[in-house]
């Protein structure tokens, strides 16, 4: 099994779990999924307080999840503004490559 396959599995398991746990989660955006050592996630949730910025929290790898994780919660409106380049992504993050997951596309 390749490293890339492992990270895809880990990220998608995590996304699945977050949809399961958070009823108001509308979409999860996996930013730059080509990265092989870290997972960058935007969670689109209308219940998170809007800040007009992307506040991404860092969590280091651990035994059962051997990838660095960076995760931010944004509102649907903030996601629209990110797509229009009105809100910048965190340093080093780009919109060149991303995957969108919704409740409909993730089997819960």
């Amino acid at each position: 099994m390749s490293q890339n396959h492992n990270i895809v599995e880990a990220a998608e398991d995590l996304i699945h779990e977050h949809f399961e746990l958070e009823p108001s989660l509308e979409q999860v955006i996996w930013i730059n999924p080509d990265k092989t050592t870290e997972i960058r996630i935007l969670e689109v949730n209308p219940e998170t307080p809007p800040t007009g910025s992307v506040l991404s929290f860092h969590f280091p790898p651990y035994d059962k999840f051997p990838y660095r994780m960076k995760i931010a919660e944004i509102t649907p409106e903030e996601w629209e503004r990110i797509l229009r380049h009105e809100i910048p992504l965190p340093n080093g993050w780009t919109l060149d490559n991303y995957k969108v997951y919704s409740r409909e596309t993730v089997t819960i």
Partner: peptide, 28 residues
């Protein structure tokens, strides 16, 4: 550590609620 821009850190005080929300789903 999450690549958040420094100007967003120094210019904003709204971080703790998001922190608790993110922690609620942290497996570690």
């Amino acid at each position: 550590a999450g690549d958040t821009k420094l100007e967003n850190l120094t210019g904003s005080h709204a971080a703790f609620v998001k922190f608790i929300r993110i922690m609620s789903g942290n497996k570690n």
